[in-house]
Amino acid sequence: MSTHSLTWLNDQLLPTSQALIPVNDHGLLYGDGVFEGIRFYQRRAFRLPQHLQRLQLSARAIALEIPLSTDELTTVIERLIGSFADDGYIRLMVTRGAGQMGLNPQSCTRPNVIAIAIAIAIAIAIDGEAILLNGQGRVAEGAADNIFIVRNGRLLTPPCSEGALEGITRELVLQLAQADGIETSEQPLGVYDL
Rank of each mutant, 00 (worst) to 15 (best):
G167M: 06
I122M: 02
Y89Q: 03
L155I: 06
L156I: 03
R39C: 09
D127H: 09
N146E: 02
D25W: 04
R91P: 05
M93R: 15
T74L: 05
E162A: 15
P22M: 06
N134P: 04
R47Y: 01
Q53V: 12
P15H: 06
I81C: 10
A123P: 00
G82V: 09
R79M: 02
D87V: 02
Q178P: 00
S2W: 01
T3S: 15
P159M: 05
S17V: 10
P67F: 07
N152A: 12
L52V: 10
T7L: 09
N152M: 00
E186Q: 14
A144T: 14
G142E: 03
L155A: 02
G135W: 06
G82L: 09
Q136S: 09
L20R: 15
Q106R: 14
G128E: 08
L155T: 02
G163P: 09
D32H: 14
D86H: 13
A119C: 09
F40E: 06
E129Y: 00
L20D: 07
L20A: 14
T3N: 15
G137Y: 12
I168A: 01
Q187G: 00
R138Y: 12
E162T: 03
L68R: 15
S5F: 01
L176K: 12
P158K: 04
L48N: 10
L165K: 04
S58T: 05
L52Y: 08
G181N: 05
I114S: 11
D145K: 08
L133G: 08
V76I: 14
T95L: 05
A61N: 14
A143W: 00
A85G: 11
S69F: 05
L14Q: 07
F46H: 13
P188K: 02
L165V: 11
R43A: 15
V23D: 07
A61P: 13
S69V: 08
L189K: 03
D11E: 15
L6Y: 06
R110L: 05
I147T: 14
L103M: 15
T157M: 01
M93H: 09
R60F: 01
L64P: 15
L155N: 04
Q50M: 11
G137C: 11
I168T: 02
R54H: 14
L165N: 03
L20M: 13
V191N: 03
L9G: 08
M93D: 06
I182V: 15
L57S: 13
L132N: 11
L14V: 00
A119G: 11
R44A: 12
L172W: 05
D127V: 07
L133Q: 10
W8R: 11
L156R: 04
I21W: 04
E186S: 04
R151M: 01
S185L: 09
A117V: 00
I124E: 13
Q12T: 12
G27N: 12
Y41W: 09
L176Y: 00
G153S: 02
L103G: 13
G135M: 02
G181C: 08
I147P: 02
R39L: 06
T169N: 06
A144H: 11
